[in-house]
Every structure is written in structure tokens, then in C-alpha cells.
Amino acid sequence: MTDRRGTDERLAAWLDGAMNPADAAAFEAEMAGNPALAEQAAAWRANDRQIADALAPLATEPIDPEWLAQMGLAESTAVAPAMPPAANDNPAWWQKRWVPVGGALAAGLALVLLVVGRPPEDPQDGGLSLALDSTPALQQAQLDDGRMIEPVLTARAADGRWCREYRIGDVAGLACREPQGWKVEAEVEAAPATKPDEIQLAGGTDNTGIAAANARLGTADPLGAADEAALIASKWGDR
């Protein structure tokens, strides 16, 4: 049945956006007068979506770093430290609020400012914007290169932009949301986190890269989890 096959092929091309506008308009007019065809189109589209959605998470699973290393691919993703790590009891930058017991570390923070005021990333920013748009604080998402990013907190800058502090491995960063994506305001090499049982709440201050960026941007107090969740759900206030 050549007719049937021809119709199926036109439907496929229409679903895939592979028709020129005139053909697409003609096909849509045909569907409007042919409920069976319209129903078939809806069913095919639903099947497509179901399969694509089911497979979508497969592309977000982390790639095993050991495997990458075996393949000789790992070194290209490693973040080369700009200087040797300082004394290993240095807390990571966000621990300015949680200083190790008995450790006079606020003055000892030795973090290396890597990037300040990088220009806005284009959409090809390795998944950073996507991850920051959609990942709640303290949960992880995978960047395109396999590294895991963990947003730490969300706060509003004085200029009205939403900003998030985050961590990618040993790199801590601060990025603010702009129409074309998240702009990295600062990134620093951070010492590994100390163990949770070694820290306690404290009111330390520092003037490391992230803190300096926060000061420069005049960021307000961080949002609570519920407010942050609502903000993510609203797509950051976008309509």
C-alpha cells in the first residue's frame, strides 16, 4: 500500500520537523480533516516521547573516572591546581561558617583565585547552566564532562540576579543567572572538606575569592530550602 507508506513517511517527517513549511502546512490541513491520521500522529508522538524520556536518564549517569583514566581520557578533565594545596587542614571556602574545633583557620585559608568575572558562558558551557538551573542545593548533577557539580546555596545579588555558590570536586564557585546562562563570578581551588565530626558552627569571616565576590555583588542572605525549591520550580521567575 504505497499510499499508506507515503502517509506514514510524511507523518514521520512532520513529527521530526523534516518538512519544509509549505509541506508541513499542507500536512496539517490534511490532518485537520482526517481524525484517524491526527490520532495516529498523537500516538506516534506519545510513543516517541515515552521512549526518549525513559532513555534520558542514561545520559546523566556519571562516567566512571577510573574507566576514563584507563582510556587515557581522564587527564584532560582534571583541574590542574594553580598552586600546591596549602596545609591540609584548610577548610573549603564555604566552611567559613563552620570552622574546625580549635583550628584557628580563618586566617589560614589559602585559596587560589582562578577566575573572576569570566564573561557570560554561551549555552555550550558544559552543562553548568543546566545543572545550576535545576539542581537543589546539596544535591549533585553531572556536567557534560562527567564531573559532578553540587550547588551549595542560593542568594540574590544586589543587582537583582540570582546567584549560587557551588562546588565541582575541589573547585568552589559562585555564578549568577543571566538571560543567556549562568555567569561564573568566581572560582577557587578549595582544600578538601574536613570531616563533619570535626566541624562546628562558627561565625568566621574571610576574604577569599568567593567571599570577595559576594562582597562585590552584595549578595543577600541565602534562601531556605523551600524558597529555593519554589524558585527552581518557577524556572527562576522566568515566564
Binding site: 532513555l55 542514561l58 545520559a59 546523566t60 549517569e61 562516567i63 581520557l73 562527567g146
Partner: peptide
Amino acid sequence: IIAVLPRLRR
């Protein structure tokens, strides 16, 4: 290649 890996795996 690294950037393509997640989709390649899928």
C-alpha cells in the same frame, strides 16, 4: 570525546 560520552553510552 569526553563531552560526547554520556550520549554515546545512551
